[in-house]
Design a protein around this nucleic acid. Structure first.
Lengths: 338, 338
DNA sequence: CCTTGGCACTCCGGGCAGCAGAGTGCCAGC
DNA sequence: GCTGGCACTCTGCTGCCCGGAGTGCCAAGG
């Protein structure tokens, strides 16, 4: 086990490196932090930390920089979450309060996160899986063509066209509409399949085909749209990445364009509480030199989606985590109100 | 007026510079192109071209590179549009044919354009202004809460919640729904305001407030959504920008994140035919070192939206224009079919 | 056993000179 | 009006040197 002071040295290294972007040496450390020991002692500690793999030297006779493992220890044991100041909180709330619909909420959240953290922000749209149905509507566009509209409690709307196997009367339509809503309105999406299972039996033979088609489309919508949408912003912040970034930035931009990759990224994070994935902990190769800080958010108690930021491993973890947490909290509030 | 040969020299300079990314000198030019004259002659021509402002030297005693004005002349007079080869056309069609809905069409188009041109692609969603109404639907979510759904001929769906001033009966709702559709179905969005103008008069006093609210929401939707959405992709291609790009790329990324900027950019382009904006011709400062190639596309004869690419001024104009035109053409076809 | 000061060593990065290559402008001749 | 020749000017690369910062190790002291 590392002694208390060695942990302190690691913390100091992380802090200085994050601040200066330059490898930090023993002398500079003792000058900037009151560790109460001499550079020589710090050197010994550094050698130990390097043996354990927490820090590394870019070249012989250069200062040390933290490794992914070092950042991990820093995040887990050495750093807390830096809470937002009151004015910051107010600004967040004010900025989000102006939103007029779900798209706007998500859009504002992305911009806010990007600005606060000066990194790339990713916000997932509230998930259909965990939200509940507010209303289901069926419209007849033509005798054998229906439109299915699904409205969620988070304000999201999905629609699907349906070609019916047979013409479907107005009364049957009203009947189906009523039955559907009485069964699923207010229920969680995950429960819908069970709730509508026996619905075709209530209809005449001639309509049964159409009802089955409608139901399967509804279920399809649930499944397909569980593959969720997301919004990203602040990509311009990637230019603050580092000096060498032609090579660094490209794979990151590529990864960010693949929604699948990002969704998987967020999906891997734990459902509640904040998740920090550092460097090579990210499965996707292009993100090996980035860290991802993410957290679930939602109206009411439980998370319906996630949001987070992607930045260089050399980031201000406490500050970033604080901003991410605060934003998630306020977005949850906004969603609950609307 | 510049002599024929001088124009030929300019064309050669543009082509070589686009290919090599390096200033091109008189000797290299005569070697790569059969101009039939000696380097010394070319030098004289270059001096003339420089006097006219078509080319410039980065430093004394370096080769020449085209200026924005030079590219402009090249595009207007010296270069045609390079048509796509047959296999390329097939690939485009195949790729776009798989699309399942409007979002998918736009998404595929963006990816396709980005890949073909190796630049940043921008695709505007089909505009509501110029499309026609397929169907308008009104749903009662609660006695005094309605949802308005608008379906366009391009497959786009918009919805709005409406809080009514007074409860609205089921029969009134059916009436309004029927009247609305009989008036606007199949009509152009631009004509809708006139068509519904006198609708409130057909209703009882108690319902008139709600009808008015519904109509104004409908009109608002038309106006608001004329401020259109768009999708961008291929930002990773920005890394191919140049050597110095930390400074170049950042403003571009910033501009790309501002949908307003992009919409204005596309809006400035002519409605039909291809538009090429080169360097400083772009109003937005961040895009002063980029060129934008855009073209309208649409189902049927007329353009309903635009698409294009953003790349370095040093781009392969004929090839890019060919790709943009071809993609626009096929997207139009796809939209017409669906 | 930990800490400390001292010392020799390493390596990066900046500054400087020198050189080759590419390109230019100009001029005189055809 | 084209061409070859010539002198000139930059850039970019290479090699070199040197200072600074940092390290590792060691022997001495608490």
């Amino acid at each position: 086990m590392l002694s208390e002071r060695r942990l302190e040295v690691l913390r100091a290294i992380v802090q200085d490196y994050v601040g200066t972007e330059e490898p930090v040496g023993s002398k500079a450390l003792t000058e900037r932090h009151s560790l109460g020991v001499s550079p020589a002692t710090v050197r010994n500690d550094m050698a130990a930390l390097e043996d354990e793999g927490f820090i590394a030297q870019p070249h012989t006779s250069a200062g040390r920089i933290p490794t992914d493992k070092g950042y991990r220890l820093f995040v887990d044991k050495l750093a807390g979450v830096k809470p937002m100041t009151l004015p910051e909180r107010r600004a967040i709330q004010n900025f989000l309060d102006g939103a007029v619909d779900l798209d706007d909420v998500v859009g504002r959240t992305v911009r806010l996160l990007a600005q606060l953290t000066r990194q790339v922000a990713v916000v997932q749209y509230p998930s259909l899986t965990r939200s509940t149905v507010r209303h289901v509507e069926l419209l007849a566009l033509a005798p054998a063509r229906l439109m299915l509209v699904l409205i969620t409690d988070t304000g999201r709307v999905e629609q699907r066209m349906i070609d019916c196997p047979a013409p479907f009367g107005e009364s049957s339509l009203a009947d189906l509409r009523a039955r559907l809503n009485s069964r699923v309105a207010g229920r969680r999406f995950a429960d819908v399949p069970q709730l509508v299972q026996d619905l075709p039996e209530a209809f005449e033979n001639e309509d049964r085909g159409t009802v089955t088609t409608v139901l399967s489309t509804l279920l399809e919508t649930l499944v397909e749209e569980t593959e969720e949408r997301l919004m990203i912003g602040g990509t311009a912040n990637l230019t603050r990445f580092g000096h060498d970034f032609p090579l660094t930035i490209r794979p990151v931009l590529e990864a960010l364009e693949e929604q699948v990759v990002l969704l998987k990224l967020l999906g891997e994070a734990t459902d509640s509480g904040m998740t920090v994935r550092i460097g090579h902990e990210n499965a996707h190769e292009g993100l090996n030199s980035t860290s991802v800080v993410s957290v679930g958010y939602g109206s009411g108690g439980e998370a319906v989606a996630k949001l987070g930021v992607v930045g260089p491993t050399r980031m201000d973890y406490p500050g970033t985590m604080g901003a991410v947490r605060a934003v998630a909290r306020y977005v949850g509030q906004i969603l609950a109100e609307s």
